[in-house]
């Protein structure tokens, strides 16, 4: 083998694309790139930035009179109403009253909902008997039942908690039994084949398998609970974010109205964040 031959191989292997493009002008061109796009990249700052820009635009619009004072109060006015709430300490009264109703109503509604959902999913007798009722009662706006709730549970905390409880109960039932129905049948058969008891299969296979669905059900039911808070506090509530919003509406105090709505919004974000945390904790196996 001559020295030339080895040289030639080396140069051939060393030749890169740009050489190729040079040496075969016109004949060689890069394959057109058609990939890219359709990929989600994270932009953490966009949402807060957009929010700030919108608020500034809104403030400017209000200050210049472009946005009528009747149509919408300026954000600074709403902020004023909010700072009044902090100054007088009323915010804690409203918040604690609402949180009490939310926590009790949501927890009880979720607890009963999960139990009933499991019962429907596991016992075909219960499914046949109860699930038509669930389907029939779910779409009824709980607000429509408020007058009845008042007779049944009184105008005190009872009817308020009940409104939230019922609103939370139905979506939880549906999420739970939907979740159980979707648990991989092979896993259950595996449990049976290893001689696991019925209770063990429910506790160690069915419930963890349905947990993702149950948790996303919680996300929805928590939002419903917040939505129903305003309805629940329509009747006989002295304090509470919902009562505050209703009073602001009745007095046409739009600055307080916006402040109240902002509180609900913050409440919603907080609850959403808490559920995300719970998901990360309980569903760490999903990566």
């Amino acid at each position: 083998m001559s020295l030339d031959a080895t040289n030639e191989i080396e140069t051939r292997t060393r030749r890169n694309t740009s050489d190729l493009q040079q040496s075969r002008k016109g004949l060689v061109k890069p394959v057109p790139f058609r990939g890219g796009g359709f990929v989600h990249t994270r932009h953490r700052l966009i949402a807060p930035l957009l929010f700030v820009v919108l608020v500034i635009l809104w403030e400017v619009g209000s200050q210049t009179g472009f946005i009528s004072n009747i149509a919408l109060p300026a954000p600074s006015e709403a902020a004023g109403a909010m700072s009044d709430l902090f100054e007088t300490g009323m915010i804690w009264k409203h918040l604690s009253a609402s949180l009490y109703r939310l926590v009790i109503g949501w927890s009880l509604g979720s607890l009963i909902g999960v139990f009933v959902g499991l019962a429907i999913a596991l016992f075909s007798l219960v499914r046949a008997g109860v699930s038509p009722f669930i389907s029939a009662l779910f779409p009824i706006p709980k607000i429509a039942l408020l007058p009845l709730f008042i007779i049944w549970f009184g105008i005190g905390e009872g009817s308020k908690v009940a409104t939230i409880l019922f609103g939370v109960f139905f979506p939880t039932v549906i999420a739970t039994y939907g979740g159980v129905d979707n648990v991989d049948r092979n896993l259950i058969r595996m449990g049976q084949s290893f001689g696991l008891s019925w209770m063990s299969i429910v506790r160690k296979i069915i419930i963890p398998g349905a947990l993702p669905a149950i948790l996303s059900g919680f996300r929805i039911s928590a939002s419903i609970a917040i939505i129903l808070l305003v309805a629940a506090e329509m009747i006989g509530a002295e304090y509470g974010i919902g009562a505050y919003i209703l009073m602001a509406g009745a007095l046409f105090a739009t600055d307080q109205l916006i402040a109240g709505v902002a509180m609900l919004s913050v409440l919603g974000l907080t609850v959403g964040w808490l559920i995300s945390r719970a998901e990360r904790l309980l569903l760490s196996w999903r990566a």
Partner: peptide, 20 residues
């Protein structure tokens, strides 16, 4: 103790049932 009931029929119901 001022008790808001939103609507007149609701106040009537509450008064009749002795809740207010």
């Amino acid at each position: 103790k001022i008790t808001p009931m939103q609507k007149v029929p609701a106040v009537i119901a509450a008064l009749k049932s002795g809740q207010i």
